[in-house]
């Protein structure tokens, strides 16, 4: 590999830029994913969602998109683990009393733990709907309904989505800074948009397990 590329990906600043880039692309995926999933709420017994699911699964580009998405996740997670490990190594001995001057937040301090919860949820989610692909494609809406009417599954989903919400509340603004995007005219507004986006994605996704837990359109 070219030396300047190696230097970039192994540097703290380069790694953070790549984390930000993969993270922002994952946010883009989440927006599209939620937009599609909202068809679950059509109240038509699942016709709209089934049509949407079939349209997606017959896309010729789907295998490539799936590989790309998996790489985004793996890349983000690899960089997160490496950065977290190096950051722990940078302070081998901690303080006996920890204080603050008021900037670090619950979300900023828990990016790694929330990430791990997201990953656990993701594995469960893939198990439910991707690894049992045949069952899902036969009756998409019914299999969502079946999975989420189980209180345990619905709770795991809600927990995973809450962790995602906390992760996102720090992530968007953080990513802009990591990519060097900071301007007195736009940064305050963009950071606010990031928070709104985090809340909107959390409420949007969490409404799905709640809806089916409460019985969905069949009740």
């Amino acid at each position: 590999m070219l030396s300047w590329i190696e230097r970039f990906v192994s540097s703290s600043v380069g790694r953070k830029a790549l984390m930000a880039l993969t993270g922002l692309m994952l946010i883009g995926f989440l927006i599209a994913h939620l937009a599609g999933n909202l068809s679950l709420f059509a109240g038509d017994g699942g016709t709209a969602f089934d049509a949407y699911a079939h349209a997606i699964s017959s896309l010729p580009i789907l295998p490539i998109a799936e590989v790309a998405l998996a790489l985004l996740f793996l890349g983000h997670i690899y960089l997160a683990v490496k950065t977290t490990r190096e950051n722990r190594r940078a302070r081998p001995q901690g303080y006996s009393v920890t204080g603050t001057h008021g900037e670090k937040s619950f979300a900023s301090k828990t990016m790694f733990p929330t990430g791990v919860v997201i990953l656990a949820f993701l594995i469960k989610h893939l198990w439910d709907f991707r690894l049992q692909k045949e069952a899902f494609e036969e009756a998409p809406y019914a299999s969502v309904q079946q999975a989420l009417s189980d209180p345990l599954t619905a709770s795991v989903y809600m927990l995973g989505i809450l962790a995602l919400g906390i992760h996102l509340s720090h992530a968007f603004g953080s990513a802009l800074q990591s990519l060097g995007a900071n301007h007195p005219k736009y940064t305050p507004a963009l950071r606010a948009i990031g928070k709104v986006l985090a809340v909107a994605l959390t409420l949007g996704f969490i409404s799905i397990p709640i809806y089916f837990w409460l019985g969905g359109s069949s009740s």
Binding site: S12, V13, N87, T100, H101, G102, E103, S174, S178
Partner: peptide
């Protein structure tokens, strides 16, 4: 900075406050 063993910024912004 990296070679000296400092960590990488995750944008807590605690530095500027302190």
């Amino acid at each position: 900075m990296d070679k000296e063993g400092f960590g990488a910024c995750t944008n807590h912004y605690e530095c500027t406050a302190a």
